[in-house]
Design a protein around this nucleic acid. Structure first.
Length: 444
RNA sequence: GGCCCUAUCGUCUAACGGUUAGGACAUCGGCUUUUCAAGCCGGUAAUAGGGGUUCGAUUCCCCUUAGGGCUACCA
């Protein structure tokens, strides 16, 4: 009764996992932590042909990146002796038998092991969906092993779950149909039947189960695009589950606190990258300037060191923090929007006047005034704050658009850029004055 | 085809059987701002259909419809 909860995440290492897979891990993890239980990761590598070490490494690495720490780790293949022993036992008891087959496809065996189906009606209770009743007759004498040494998924899972003490099987809805045959095996083996929680599926935009074949992105791709693990966890947790209240942003600790299997949705949900992006932006915005610069730096180092063109990241990061939805976008901005820092811009007269809402004559008057004001400042004290203090009152007086738009364009050469004071501070006195003077001559 | 699961705005979702059906993302307006973002304010938008049960159904039951899953010697 007071048995400690044990959940598990049991992927097969046959490819890169997508968001739907990792959401299952998130739920299994949250439930284990919520109840003070244990979270197990088991690599299901019984399919020797398709299982690859690199995928296993990727899965473990990604779980770690997400912060889903497991308490125990297993590899299904390592439990092979038990599988074989129990398989033999079933055959000895005539609950399973060696069956002669006619291979229908190349590679199929002439002999496999089938389970003697008792053909009964069986009911199990799913925490999320309630009782589910099935007539197992339809299943026939299904295959449980390719040979005495090669169990098939259904057999291996059941044995492993029992051996590892799994109390709660949290997995995708696509396994509901598999559950009856697994229970049949458990009954034959006299194993305890765990509690089941079949999660609604995560669907792609086409409303079918997320799958690599249909173009679902690997979760690692989001990492590579500059998503934060906190954002991913938060988004994934809220896809198919929602606590009471209207809060949307949750730390992992808060999720653990609030989590319950009962509030998991029954209906499938579509993976919405747009909302995920929003979450990521929220997390990015909440970072301090230093932390954001740090993240960006790390991201850049990982991708390609010269990506940012040797820019001063700590100085520029705050300027793009609120605008970027991902670190990837931030990197793009760094690369594309700050070239004016080292390349002299050549704004046209048209651009200089575009947002000024004023006549050319007035604009040149304002530029002259700004140049005059800034000329009086020293090299040392030429900071963004100081420049603003010097120019702002005048700009306010004559119309901010009329004075500040041309100034900003003169310094950046761009329609969109940080504000003119920041630009001036970044460029320094000499470059600022040179660019303003040049712009003035263009306007005249 | 058979078996199983599901059904609230475009999307994610809230609502002891009694709400003007709420929130978030997206979208569309407006405000603010020196541009772009951000921010603030507001709008559009949903209970699949039909039967019951009930004084009263988004909510409970049945049917239909639609979608999805499984139907492997993959997991």
């Amino acid at each position: 009764m007071t048995q400690r909860v044990v959940t598990r995440f049991a992927p097969s290492p046959t490819g890169l996992l997508h968001g739907g897979n990792y959401r299952t891990a998130v739920f299994a993890y949250l439930y284990a932590k919520k109840t003070g239980g244990e979270f197990i990761v088991r690599i299901e590598d019984t399919d020797r042909e398709r299982s690859k070490k690199e995928y296993e490494d990727n899965i473990l690495e990604t779980l770690q990146w997400l912060g889903l720490k497991h308490d125990k780790f297993y590899r299904q293949s390592e439990n092979a002796p038990r599988h074989q022993a129990l398989l033999k036992e079933l055959i000895a008891k005539d609950l399973a038998y060696v069956s002669k087959e006619e291979p229908k496809e190349p590679g199929q065996r002439a002999e496999v092991i089938r389970f003697r189906n008792p053909k009964t009606t069986l009911t199990f209770t799913d925490v999320i969906r309630g009782p589910i009743t099935v007539d197992t007759t339809d299943l026939g004498d299904f295959v449980i092993a390719r040979s005495e040494t090669e169990p098939v998924f259904h057999f291996a899972v059941v044995v492993d779950d029992a051996d590892e003490g799994v109390t709660h099987v949290v997995r995708g809805e696509d396994h509901i149909s598999n559950t009856p045959r697994q229970i049949l095996i458990m009954q034959a083996l006299g194993l305890p039947i765990p509690t089941y929680a079949h999660l609604p599926l995560v669907l792609g935009p086409d409303r079918t189960k997320l799958s690599k074949r249909r173009g679902a992105k690997a979760l690692t791709q989001y990492r590579d695009e500059g998503y934060l693990p906190e954002a991913l966890i938060n988004y994934l947790a809220l896809l198919g589950w929602h606590p009471e209240g209207e809060q949307e942003l949750f730390s992992v600790d808060e999720l653990v606190q609030a989590f319950s299997l009962e509030r998991i949705q029954k209906g499938s949900g579509i993976f919405d990258e747009v909302k995920l992006k929003w979450f990521n932006q929220e997390y990015l915005k909440r970072l301090s300037n230093e932390a954001f610069a740090d993240q960006l730096k790390k991201y850049l180092d990982l991708r390609s060191p010269e990506y940012a063109g040797g820019r001063d990241i700590p100085a520029l990061a705050p300027l793009i923090k609120d605008r970027a939805q991902t670190l990837g976008e931030a990197a793009e901005m760094l690369k594309n929007e700050f070239d004016f820092l080292d390349t002299e811009p050549a704004p046209t007269k048209e651009l200089l006047l575009q947002g000024a809402k004023a006549e050319a004559a007035d604009v040149s008057k304002h530029l002259e005034k700004v140049i005059e004001t800034l000329s009086g400042m020293g090299d040392e004290s030429f900071t963004a704050e100081a420049v603003k203090e010097a120019v702002f009152p005048y700009a306010t007086e004559v119309g901010r658009s009329a004075a500040l738009w041309p100034m900003r364009v003169a310094l950046s050469g761009k329609e969109k850029s940080p504000d003119p004071f920041t630009l001036a501070g970044l460029l320094g006195r000499e470059k600022t004055l040179a660019r303003l003077t040049k712009a003035l001559s263009v306007v005249k």
